[in-house]
């Protein structure tokens, strides 16, 4: 079971590290990361495997969202099925 973590906002040091640490702490495995910085704007899309996640998914969502607020970026954590439903026939 996979989820998609997106991070959008003003670039600063350690965004990727902090998000990765949050994931590692609850056994969420990172499968793929795409990241770019364009004109100071940070954009990252991360595919993660949440099968072995040690906390309820909702808790992971809350933890990452508040981490995003700390860093001044917007973090979304969403189950991949929402994207599959919307964009695949």
């Amino acid at each position: 079971m996979n989820a998609v973590i997106t991070v959008l906002g003003k670039d600063n040091v350690g965004i990727l590290a902090k998000v990765s640490n949050e994931c590692a702490a609850v056994d969420v495995n990172i499968i793929e990361v795409t990241q770019s910085v364009l004109q100071g704007m940070f954009a990252m899309i991360m595919f993660v495997d949440i099968t072995k996640c040690t906390v309820p998914f909702a808790q992971l969502v809350d933890a990452l969202e508040s981490k995003g607020e700390e860093m001044g970026v917007k973090i979304h954590v969403m189950h991949e099925d929402i994207f599959n439903a919307m964009h695949k026939i």
Binding site: A43, I45, I82, N84, M86, H87, K88
Partner: peptide, 10 residues
């Protein structure tokens, strides 16, 4: 899923 689709949904 491609990144364009993800960003579009968000």
């Amino acid at each position: 899923i491609n990144s364009h689709d993800i960003l579009e949904t968000i």
